[in-house]
Every structure is written in structure tokens, then in C-alpha cells.
Simulated assay, not measured.
Amino acid sequence: MSPAAEAGTDGSPADGADGGGLRALLDDVAGGALRRLDAMRPCFRLPADVTTDADPNLTLKPLGELAELMRVITVLHPLPAVRDAAADLFAFAWKEARGGELFAELVHGEPAATYPVELYGVFAAAGLRHPGAEELIGATTSLRRWRVARDDHTRTLGVLNAERRIGLPPHADFADVLARTGLGLRPEPWALDRTGAYGITHDVFHTTDWGRAPERLPADLAAYLRLWLPAWTHTWAEERLWDLTGEFLAVAACLPGRPPDAEQWARFAAARTPDGAVPESGDPPPPGATEHETFLACYHSTLVAAFASTLARASMESEATP
């Protein structure tokens, strides 16, 4: 039975036809995206030269994103079938990381790089540890070089969140760094470009530990987001930037007391392909596109679809619980 077919049988409280329809839609989005991601496994596999010559943006980054978002779904989605499918993909990512040995090699090769620590933090938070990687990470993050201020404050939030997950002392004050991010500065909403928009979504994700701890988002920033998210989401959907639209839907689900926008979700869901994938922007790749081309055009937005629909579904359950 598909996750969507299980909707309404998981013991969640009934909340009327509209709420039930939205729950079914969210479950369908999550279930379809997970099935498509499962079919994409060969494209997530790491090449033999991953620690030397391979482009990390095309190898490690997709696998790390898969691990991050599958772990969220495993923890938060109310349907067992959806959680199980995500847990299987998370286990696949850990296997590709060779039980953590990959991170030991990456840190040994690039002691000052932050991305191996960020990637390892996803697994460490789930209780998956590698002693060799831990020893090297402990040594490199204690260096003065590690505490040098970074220009990208959003990325620094990600590093601080990884340190918290692993159990390392933070190299900077989280609240101080957040105040210097795009979100912390609360830019004029009409001046938000695409780069700034992605920065704001990730400020929220790092602050809330990818939706697990929404209470960590300061009240003034949550109020700013509540005010402007509807307009931003509508604008990016009008431009058919589905990946960014999905990220804003995920941000909305990180705000306590804000129910999912059924109209925006219907619009986003309509951008899917019959197999459950979501194109990053516009239409899906044309017939005849290679597997790799299709993967690059759809994998991240499909991950975001599974993630955002999970957060929205979990928020509905949380609000329905007395």
C-alpha cells in the first residue's frame, strides 16, 4: 500500500473535508517524491574518486542533502510507510559514506574545510558515529584556523548546527551570527532576489535544525516571515521556480500556529511529473534527456517536496493535538 493510500488510517484526528484533502495531498507529494528518489539511487552513488578529483557539488552535496532530509522525514512524518521509505534511503546514504570512513578521509585531506563536518553531523545526530572521523574532527575544529570569521553567515549557522549535533563546543555565538544573516537583518521584502531568498530559507533551516526545533526561531524573525512569506511564495510560484517555492513552503511549516496554505500546496503539487518528481524550475526535462540530466534538473526540488510536505503534515498533526 502506498503512503498516500494510508492517509486517514493512521489514527490522526479528522478535521473536516478540506483538512483531510490537504493531508491526503501532502501524503501523496511525500510518497511520490520518495518513490522517485528511490529510483534515483544510482545517481546518488559516490564515484571511486570522490575524495580526490570528483566535484563535491555533484557528488557529496546531493548525497548529503539526501541524508539530511531523509532523516527529518524518518523522525517527523506521521505515516509509518513514509518513515520507513525515508529510513531506507538514509541507511543507503550511510552505506555510501562507508560507515563514516569517508568523513575521516575528507577531513584528513582538507582539515580546514567545513563541509565534511557538516555532512558528518547529519549522521552523528542520528547516533551513527565513526571514531576516526570524530578524532580528526575534534582536532581540526579546535584549531585557531577554525575560529576565523567566515563571510557567509548562513553557512556559519550550518557549521554551528553541525558542531551542536556532534557535541563539539561552538566556535561562535549562534545568536550573534544569526543577527548578521539575511534573515537576521530583515531586508526590505520587495528587494529580495533569488540568492537572498535561498539564504533566508537556510537561515531558518539551520536555526530550527531543519524543522525539528521551531521554537529556536526568535519571535521577531518569525513575525517577519509570517508577514511576507505569502507574497514571496506566490511570486516564486508565478515564476515557476519550484525548488524555491518548495523551500518557502517548508519555511512556512517551521512557523508554529501557521496552517499550510492549501492553495499554494495545490499549485506546487501540480508541477509534479506523473512519477512524483518536481522540476527545479519550469517544465521537467524533455523526452530523450539522459538520466544524469534528469537527475540534476529534478533531484533537489524532489527532495524539497518530500521535506516540505513532511513538515507541513507534521505541523497539522501538532496543531490538532490538544
Rank of each mutant, 00 (worst) to 15 (best):
P259C: 01
A24W: 10
A30F: 07
P131Y: 11
A30Y: 03
E118Q: 15
G8H: 09
H202P: 00
R267D: 10
F307D: 02
G276D: 02
V278E: 04
L225V: 07
A5H: 03
D152L: 01
L25N: 04
A33K: 08
T74C: 02
G182Q: 04
W242P: 07
F123K: 00
R145G: 15
A172G: 02
G121W: 01
D275W: 08
D176N: 08
L25G: 04
A113F: 03
G121L: 05
W94D: 10
V159N: 01
T154S: 00
V107E: 03
E68F: 10
A162Y: 05
T233S: 07
A231M: 11
A24L: 14
D209E: 12
E118T: 14
F268E: 03
D283T: 11
Y224T: 07
E110T: 14
S2E: 13
F174G: 02
P3A: 10
A314I: 09
A4H: 10
T294I: 06
A175Q: 13
F44E: 08
A320L: 12
L183A: 03
Y299Q: 11
G158S: 05
V117F: 00
G20D: 15
D193H: 03
P214M: 05
V72L: 13
D193Y: 01
T310K: 01
P80R: 09
D84L: 11
R147A: 15
P169S: 11
G99Q: 05
G132E: 15
V148F: 02
P189M: 06
D203A: 10
